[in-house]
């Protein structure tokens, strides 16, 4: 699956993933956004691994938010836009 979400006034968030037994698998969140520290992206993608395809975007965004440490800075995107990209991929 492939979903893209352009943040208004921000950057493009892309979600590439597969669906296995109704759950997200091999999730890659990618795009032209900025993120410090860069290692935080692995945590963002991992937080969506195993998410049920029935979860709404609010729940997906919560997963992303909970994966972020205190000093993570997302520029041009946020947890909601990551969830929106996944949502586009599912629809």
């Amino acid at each position: 699956m492939h979903g893209e979400y352009k943040v208004p006034g921000g950057k493009l968030v892309i979600a590439d993933f597969e669906v296995e037994n109704g759950k997200l698998a091999r999730v890659s969140i990618n795009g032209d956004f900025f993120l410090e520290p860069p290692e935080a992206l692995g945590k963002i993608s991992a937080s969506l691994e195993g998410a049920d395809i029935g979860e709404d975007e609010g729940e997906l965004a919560r997963r992303v938010r909970d994966s972020l440490g205190e000093n993570v800075e997302m520029v041009g995107f946020d947890a909601e836009s990551v969830a929106a990209a996944v949502g586009r991929g599912l629809s």
Binding site: I14, D16, S28, I29, N30, G31, D32, F33, L35, P38, L41
Partner: peptide
């Protein structure tokens, strides 16, 4: 290309 981009995309 950007650090967070997937070259295939």
């Amino acid at each position: 290309f950007g650090r967070f981009q997937s070259p295939g995309n």
